[in-house]
Nucleic acid binder design. Structure first.
Length: 300
DNA sequence: CAAATTTGACCACC
DNA sequence: GGTGGTCAAATTTG
């Protein structure tokens, strides 16, 4: 995908945007076709799929090239405005106990999830700080924090859990935004809500960052109790080399149209209530449109 | 030898 | 008390 030159990419994006706008207009026409103001379910479904196709294509263009070898099936974003456990309250600053730091419970800032076939290399440096067997979960959950947590105070963390064996599927939950500057691929931001995803940071001309071995332990996590040596061996044997963008292009074409797993959704939550919103509906909202597509429009 | 990972323990919340 | 998130010593890796 990144092999598309800047102008070619821009043209492709413009075409997709044009197609999407046309589909939207078609939807309006269809909705006005019938007296009851509704189109046939089939027509509505078709329009929905067309819109989704455009949307997904644009999102794939937007995606981090380094994650191209991983199919991101799902992007879910929500706010968790629960603020009852502020960090200050949890950090028993007045207590004398020192041996361990204060154990801050789950931060309730905005979080978002991604599901992919392989752990996502999102261009940031992550350090694993924990692994936990989760009740009723087949695989352990892995905890990562930004490598620059201490030198730059970056509070970004993520949790990665393998949720499915066949096909292998990982769910990555991100917490907090990166505030560090030293990401491996700072111009590519998967974080859909990050201020950094504005055009000033977005560039599609980056070279790939090679898939980091840091992500490999997830694969070995499929074994409930892997030995250290087996971890390393599995990493080297099972992690495929990053495929070329051409490969990705073909792969996307082959799998994009009919597989429901490529459905991309955005979700938002109020008061921790999870509400799933189909992206084709979300995109009708101009604000959401800007949120999703603005970066494309400003590529130069 | 510095950085990263592993892993058991600690801690907060329910 | 159970569960899950985090810490930090021990260990591994490059």
């Amino acid at each position: 995908m990144e092999n598309l030159g800047g102008s070619s990419r821009r043209k492709a994006i413009e075409e997709l945007l044009r197609g999407r706008d046309s589909a939207q207009q078609l939807k309006s026409v269809i909705n006005g076709t019938y007296d009851d103001g509704s189109a046939t379910p089939f027509a509505q479904q078709l329009v929905k799929e067309v819109l989704m196709s455009f949307t997904n294509s644009l999102l794939f263009l937007h995606n981090n090239p380094t994650s191209e070898s991983h199919h991101v099936f799902n992007v879910q974003v929500w706010d968790s405005p629960k603020s009852e456990d502020s960090q200050e309250s949890n950090c028993k600053s007045s207590t004398i106990k020192e041996p361990r730091g204060c154990y801050k419970r789950r931060r309730t800032e905005q979080t978002w999830e991604k599901e992919s076939e392989a752990p996502i290399d999102d261009g940031h440096h992550w350090r694993k700080y924990g692994q936990k067997e989760i009740l009723n979960a087949k695989f352990p959950r892995n905890y990562y924090r930004c490598t620059h947590k201490f030198d730059q105070g970056c509070q970004a963390t993520k949790q990665v859990q393998r949720v499915q064996e066949e096909p292998i599927l990982f769910k990555t939950t991100y917490y907090e935004h990166h505030t560090c500057k030293n990401s491996a691929n700072p111009d590519i931001i998967l974080d859909p809500m990050s201020p950094s995803s504005s055009s000033k940071f977005l560039s599609f001309d980056n070279s790939f960052s090679t898939p980091s071995k840091q992500e490999c332990p997830f694969l070995s996590s499929s074994n409930n109790f892997p030995s250290s040596s087996s971890v390393k061996r599995e990493c080297k044997e099972e992690v495929p080399p990053s495929i070329s963008s051409n490969d990705y292009l073909i792969f996307s074409d082959l799998t994009f149209d009919s597989s429901p797993r490529h459905h991309v959704t955005l979700s938002s939550t109020l008061d921790s209530e999870y509400k799933s919103v189909d992206i084709s509906d979300v995109l009708y909202d101009s604000a959401q449109l800007d949120f999703v597509f603005e970066p494309f429009l400003e590529i130069r």
